[in-house]
Design a protein around this nucleic acid. Sequence first.
DNA 1: TAAAAATATTAGGTTTATCTAATCTTATAT
DNA 2: ATATAAGATTAGATAAACCTAATATTTTTA
Lengths: 228, 228
Amino acid sequence: MSNLTAPRSPSSSVGDYLKAVWELARDSGEAASTKDVAARLAVSPASVSNMFARLQEMGLVSYERYRGATLTGRGRSEALRLVRRHRLIETFLLGHLGYSWEEVHEEAERLEHAVSDGFTERLAEFLGHPEHDPHGDPIPAADGTLEPDDSFQLGRAEAGEQVRIYKVNDDDASVLDYLGEHNLTPGRLLTVREVRALDAVVTVEDEEGESHSLGEALARSIFVQKSQ
Amino acid sequence: MSNLTAPRSPSSSVGDYLKAVWELARDSGEAASTKDVAARLAVSPASVSNMFARLQEMGLVSYERYRGATLTGRGRSEALRLVRRHRLIETFLLGHLGYSWEEVHEEAERLEHAVSDGFTERLAEFLGHPEHDPHGDPIPAADGTLEPDDSFQLGRAEAGEQVRIYKVNDDDASVLDYLGEHNLTPGRLLTVREVRALDAVVTVEDEEGESHSLGEALARSIFVQKSQ
DNA sequence: TAAAAATATTAGGTTTATCTAATCTTATAT
DNA sequence: ATATAAGATTAGATAAACCTAATATTTTTA
């Protein structure tokens, strides 16, 4: 019965690995190590070694033993397809179902494996084809292209600069909550007053003239672009 | 890592079997046979025998070899939880994402395994807590109760009766499309003009005085209740 | 630079869900 | 009432993901 071994699209767990490799490469610029992927997916390093070998066979990563894995073109576009789904789903959960920052990630993680491309595109339509998710992260286009991201951490800015918040890191929900409450959200314009080397505290002034002093953890979570 | 063999909620395929047993019992009133469940889920009868034994161990069905399976209380409420999800998701896909009757079932089938109870309740909220899906089928309540269904097929009605369309069968998308086009949808009031034994054609008149002659396939797909 | 520490891989299992083929039980029909 | 057909079960495999324990390689540090 339907044992034609239909070569279905990569299984959901293949996708998890591809996304993890993509995210690690994005943050570090290097090949993804067994250990890091294992930590991110909460599996054993042995499982990752195994999967890397399989992904290599499938032509989704290039992998050299003891050296980690890098996405191939196909691997990257598969990963971006999932990232697109994830970010559209998060946008929906936050904007229409009343999810909080904390809850949204986990639900989106599960949903992104279950929805079809058809669903994804209809959801994009429903949401008005947003180009960024609520954290400010760009949503990859349906054709697998992704807006280049030239933002940098607020902690790297210089005093006197005018910057625009591009995105906020989605790793820590409590940080996200704080930033939301103080209106430090994507799109906001900031003037950098001081970047103190000593304790990494950054002082900025927002559009309303409100001043904020942000410690390292916060300044690292805010990514900005130079404003003209 | 995290190998505590957490007794997670029944796996997605367990849910498929429970729903199949529930649906077959609803339509036939009997224990579900290996063969019928196998056909419905497109798996081999051997797989069903296997799963029946496992479901029995889990206390979700009562099962006697060669005699088929019936849901226990727990099995039924688990099945209804999935039916609730399914019907809410269908309501959303049809009402907000522009899905057609044909497409909706398959997508909902996949999604219902991925969403959490939290998602389900937020979606219910978003949809305004509907009590019926777009086919007219009642949506089980969050507490696992289901409105009793005393509807019957239009073919069983008698000439002269006033009936209200309660639900339309969702098995055949082309039938559904025809009914939709002719406004024979849940909630509509009909007067039965003739039920011809000879060829099972039923003639009805709708609220606008429009007359419809419906052959067996159509008359069997429309479920009605007596109107007062 | 050699020993120790950190990482990675391989080997050998386990679980879930499936299959096919062979056998067994129940139902049907002559 | 018995032979045949239909349906169900068991046995034995397979594939995907995972694990632990043992071993190998690379990196760090003394």
